[in-house]
Structure formats: C-alpha cells, structure tokens
C-alpha cells in the first residue's frame, strides 16, 4: 500500500531523513514511534504530499503521492489546529462529505460509532481536547480511504474515548485498510499494534514487539541511551 524509497528530507538545513526506506505491503495497524520533535509528523506530511522530499520516492498503491492520489487513497488525522474554532463540527464534516461525495447516513454512522454526534452542532472552540480528537477521527474515517495516517490520535482522550478510538482503529484494519499511527504513548499504542516503525538516526526501522514491556525496552535502547 505504501512504499518509501531512498527518502531524504531536510528542514531548514537540518536533516530529518537520510535515504530512509519503508514499506507497508499488507493491511493492518502500524505504529510510528519516536520522541517528540524527531520527525513523526514530518514523515506523515511527506506521505500526504504536504511536504516535498529533497530526494526519494513515495508511492501509494503503486502510484506517486500526487494531490489527486492522496485525495483518493489517504485519510489523514492531523493535530487539532486544523479545525476552525468558529465552525461547528458538523460544518467540518459536511465539507469532507461534500468533497468526497459521501452519504450523510454513512457520516452519521461513523460519528455515532465514536460517540461524536452529541456535540457536532457546537462550535469547535467549545470542545474539550477529547472532543476535538474524536471529531478529527470521524473526519479521517468517513472518507473510507485505504491508507489512514493518524498523527497522535490518542492524545487527550479519557479511558472511555481511548477504548472507542482503539476499537475504531482495529475495525479499520479488519476492513482491509492500512493504518499508520504515530505516537509516543507506547502503552496505548501497544493495545492496537505490535508492528512498530521506529524513527531513529534519520532512518526508519521496522520491528515487531511482543509486548508493551518489550516496546518500552526497545524505546529506551534507541532513544534514552543516546540522551
């Protein structure tokens, strides 16, 4: 579904990726782990075509990640700054539904699945962090894109919401979609996947961690030892 080859990217002359490789060939949930500021969001932005690499190729379903290809194949949950505070959640969803030609009943069902229907008619500025995360999740999941990029979707969620989001992520994988979840919250990430891509030393390393403990150990080896 997603192939990254020889990716190099510098941001303001600082190298973030140097000839990095990544392949997500089968559907499922994959974690993307690194400390804050290491380039997780940058990688997702590169995949979504919001940033252009200095070299290397990114293909989605065998095609370059052009604007049109990303529009058709990718759903991307970004951080909550993408929301317009003076608009309601429903206004955001209406826009996504209209541009992707989605059925309103389908949108309503996804919103209900994430228990977001109750607050959709309120302005976003009145939302709690958890509400914003759930709205973003609904906005990402309604499009039915085969590749789903989730940037820190577990932030700011209470235990009930965490369970709902976990279920939603796993449901997407069971529908044959590929979900790439960035997070530095290893215990929560471990609940949805054991396939982890660690971003380390400007490279992407794939590892299968058997447990939350194993993931934490590996995280410590990679990042805390350096510090």
């Amino acid at each position: 579904m997603l192939t990254i080859e020889d990716l190099s990217f510098k941001f303001h002359r600082q190298s973030v990726f140097a000839h990095a490789q990544m392949q997500l060939l089968t559907p499922g949930v994959f974690g993307l782990v690194a400390p804050n500021g290491s380039g997780k969001s940058t990688l997702l932005n590169l995949i979504a075509g919001l940033l252009r690499p200095q070299s290397g190729t990114i293909t989605i379903d065998g095609q370059p990640n052009t604007t049109r290809q990303v529009f058709k194949q990718v759903a991307y949950l970004q951080d909550n700054r993408v929301l317009y505070p003076y608009l309601t959640g429903r206004a955001h969803l209406d826009f996504v539904a209209a541009t992707h030609h989605l059925d309103q009943a389908h949108v309503a069902a996804v919103a209900e699945q994430l228990k977001a229907s109750a607050f959709l008619d309120r302005r976003v500025r009145k939302y709690s962090l958890g509400m914003k995360q759930r709205l973003l999740m609904v906005m990402a999941l309604v499009t039915d894109a085969p590749l789903i990029l989730l940037d820190e979707p577990l932030n700011g969620l209470d235990p009930t919401c965490l369970r709902l989001v976990h279920e939603a992520i796993l449901a997407q994988a069971s529908q044959g979609k590929t979900v790439l979840v960035s997070s530095h919250n290893l215990p929560e990430l471990s609940r949805v996947t054991q396939d982890i891509w660690f971003l380390h030393d400007q490279q992407l390393q794939h590892e299968v961690v058997s447990s939350e403990q194993a993931a934490a150990t590996r995280y410590a080896e990679l990042y805390e030892a350096v510090e």
Binding site: T67, R68, F71, Y76, Q78, D79, R81
Partner: peptide
C-alpha cells in the same frame, strides 16, 4: 496554518 493543509488534503486539485 495547518488548516490550509486540511483544505488541500480534502480537495483533488
């Protein structure tokens, strides 16, 4: 702002 990115992601052109 990131809102620009969100708009771009939701438009084919």
């Amino acid at each position: 702002s990131p809102q620009h990115d969100w708009m771009q992601l939701n438009l084919p052109n």
